[in-house]
């Protein structure tokens, strides 16, 4: 390993209380993000992708991390004092969200909200903070920043609001920016602009980007590495080009096939995955994807496969990879196994 990763998530479990008892929305998730890198966590609804990212920052409403570890530059965040987490939020770890319309406080001006972020972590005169706010707005490409700094969120379009969110995230030069579905609520032309902005900001500020999305096309455009999640589990991870071009996990493969592209033949049915995405409470026993899997084996319903490391940096959770393993005791779920 050349350098230790910036962020290291290990065997993370996030639990939510429900009337029917606690449910693990995230069950044993591990991944790393290195400095300056873009990692995408991709998954459908109920995959636990957003929950994982909120858990990192201690921003979960009712749920909590029940096991696992989150290391930021070797500092353990799980169980850290709330005051320490607060210091890290907005300074080292910044976050932007899906819905820019509702993510800004409607009662305060854009400028006030930026100044607040600036002054949360370092002493700064109000005037200097104000000037810096205008500068940041200019940097994220908001037209007429001197005037817009006095605008209220409702006076901006969705794209402009998301630019403001990016400006707020950049106030303290974070080492990692978490973007949770940053363009899902936006129109495609505006989406392209925001993705471009994120790329530029990442390049100029040298920060790492953890991109949470359901959209494989966004992954393909933005990320270096991808982590595919299904029903609270990581099912595959690796470099984006490899995973998208030759997915090893049946879920990843089926998911990619079911995305309409300009080349999808119109006179044939779309390749689709049967059944529906399970909610965390109804995740089946064994492999969580087995009821919908086209390559299902008998053992898939009995035991959950481990995440096999196919080669360094590439892993997939599927019993199909077991053929490459020598005979031995069945490995426990959650452990990483090396394929010879």
């Amino acid at each position: 390993m050349p350098s230790p990763p910036l962020l290291e998530v290990n065997d993370l479990y996030v639990r939510f209380p429900t009337p029917a008892g606690p449910v693990n929305a995230v069950a044993g998730v591990s991944f790393t993000v290195s400095a300056g890198e873009t990692v995408a966590v991709v998954g459908e609804s109920g995959s636990g992708k957003s929950v994982s990212s909120l858990a990192l920052l201690g921003l979960l409403g009712s749920g909590n991390i029940s096991a696992g570890s989150v290391l930021l530059r070797d500092e353990e965040l799980v169980g850290a004092a709330p005051e320490r987490l607060r210091q890290l939020r907005g300074s080292e770890l910044a976050m932007i969200f899906q819905n820019p319309m509702s993510s800004l406080d409607p009662l305060f001006t854009i400028g006030d909200q930026l100044v607040e972020a600036l002054r949360a972590h370092r002493p700064m005169a109000r005037r200097a903070a104000r000037a810096r706010a205008v500068e940041l707005l200019r940097e994220v490409g908001l037209p007429d920043p001197e005037r817009r700094v006095r605008a209220y969120p409702h006076e901006l379009s969705g794209g402009q609001q998301q630019r403001v969110m990016v400006a707020i995230a950049l106030t303290c030069e974070p080492a990692l920016l978490i973007a949770d579905e940053p363009t899902t609520a936006l129109d495609v032309t505006v989406e392209a602009q925001i993705l471009e902005l994120l790329r530029t900001m990442q390049r100029e500020h040298g920060m790492a980007l953890l991109l949470i999305t359901h959209d494989m096309a966004v992954v393909a455009e933005m990320a270096d590495r991808v982590v595919v999640m299904y029903a609270g589990r990581v099912v595959e991870q690796g470099p984006v080009a490899e995973v998208l071009r030759s997915p090893r996990n049946p879920y990843t493969r089926a998911l990619i096939d079911s995305i309409p592209t300009p080349a999808t033949p119109r006179d044939q049915p779309m390749p689709a995955i049967a059944g529906s995405v399970p909610t965390p409470a109804e995740a089946p026993a064994g492999c969580r994807f087995h009821p919908r899997c086209p390559s299902v084996l008998d053992r898939c319903s009995e035991a959950e496969p481990p995440l096999y490391e196919l080669r360094p940096g590439r892993a997939s959770r599927c019993w199909l990879h077991d053929g490459a393993l020598r005979a031995g005791p069945a490995p426990a779920a959650g452990e990483v196994h090396h394929v010879a």
């Binding site: 402009q160 989406e191 494989m216 455009e221 592209t261």
Partner: peptide, 28 residues
Amino acid sequence: EMLVSAVPEFAPERADGRARRSVPRGEP
């Protein structure tokens, strides 16, 4: 043309040759 070029490129077979497309300007 703007709309088409704005759609994120998803072609697994070309996923490593990421096209630098033109970014649409303005908003409706």
